[in-house]
């Protein structure tokens, strides 16, 4: 008879795993990915595939070269690639998509120690890198249906007098310029609902992030429609649901995550309203990523029976 196993408790475990969580995020991104292909056609599909493959391959090769344990099985590289693709406009050539993915995976994630060790969100940092390097293609957006003719996004138009803006319904369904995955709010909300049902994320972060932007605009403009327009525009919903809820780069405490979301909302508002940049979601999340360790410290609870 083999000896019984000796180990510390507990001796049962929940069915969850990191891989399952990543798979859930991928599933939650499927409606948005499908919407991207419907709106922008096959080029969107090639972008998604390019980013995902480039992400997975670069993580695989990094682990191979650095002699680290292979980690592509945890599916987090797929999530990064998918998110990056959805955050880019249809004008970005495939080689830039690939380059952004390699940057996100290798420089933002792997060199810091891989999954769980990166201080900033890889997809967001990858997008910001591409934005800085290839401003002409990454900034702005393509209107769905148009033959890849560059045009202004609603957020750029909103300050321009006489510009014709899409209706709120068009905004909700993604009939507007911007990154391929950010437009169809309906698809993003489906993903949000799925993540809530699977208990992968809690509702607070996205709701507070979007809510803060909404309230700021309501106060600043006094117009309900403008405030509504602002939260449907840009990458706000995509960022709030999928990137401000990233585990690794947000505080570990529930209270810290509330402050994180609040900060994201405020910074987004300030950038959109007062800065030269049309869009602030990526930058706001990156800023708060950097503050996350501090938020975690400030929101430490006094343990029961401790000091």
């Amino acid at each position: 008879m083999e000896k019984p196993i000796m180990s510390a408790g507990p001796h049962i475990h929940s069915k969850d795993s990191s891989r399952r969580i990543m798979l859930d995020v991928i599933i939650a991104l499927l409606p948005a990915s499908a919407a991207a292909v419907v709106l922008y056609g096959l080029p969107a599909l090639w972008m998604i595939l390019t980013c995902v493959i480039a992400s997975v391959v670069s993580e695989f090769l990094f682990n191979l070269i650095a002699r680290r344990q292979q980690s592509v099985g945890d599916l987090s590289a797929v999530v990064t690639g998918l998110l990056l693709a959805l955050n880019l406009s249809a004008r970005v050539p495939l080689w830039q998509c690939a380059l952004g993915s390699v940057f996100a995976i290798v420089l933002v994630k792997c060199v810091f120690g891989g999954i769980g060790h990166n201080f900033a969100n890889p997809a967001i940092t990858g997008r910001i890198f591409l934005l800085a390097a290839f401003t002409s293609t990454v900034a702005g957006g393509v209107w769905p249906g148009a033959d890849a003719v560059s045009s202004a996004t609603p957020l750029e138009l909103i300050g321009t007098e006489g510009a014709e803006l899409p209706t709120l319904l068009q905004m909700f369904l993604g009939q507007r310029g911007g990154a391929i995955g950010e437009g169809c709010i309906l698809a993003l909300l489906l993903g949000f609902a799925y993540l809530l049902i699977r208990k992968v994320i809690s509702w607070q972060t996205p709701v507070i992030f979007v809510g803060t932007v909404f309230v700021c605009y309501l106060v600043a403009s006094g117009s309900f429609t403008v405030a509504l327009y602002e939260i449907l525009a840009g990458g706000l919903v995509l960022g709030a649901v999928f990137m401000a809820t990233d585990y690794t780069t947000t505080p570990i405490t529930a209270e810290g995550r509330l402050l994180f979301a609040l900060g994201c909302g405020l910074i987004t508002f300030v950038i959109r309203r007062f800065c030269a940049l049309p869009e602030g979601v990526s930058y706001s999340i990156l800023c708060m990523n950097i503050l996350a360790p501090w938020l975690e410290k400030w929101t430490r609870r006094k343990p029961l029976g401790g000091v």
Partner: peptide, 14 residues
Amino acid sequence: DAQKTEPSPCIHCG
């Protein structure tokens, strides 16, 4: 039932 799953890195899920 006694089998243990190998640990993987912390993903900071909280």
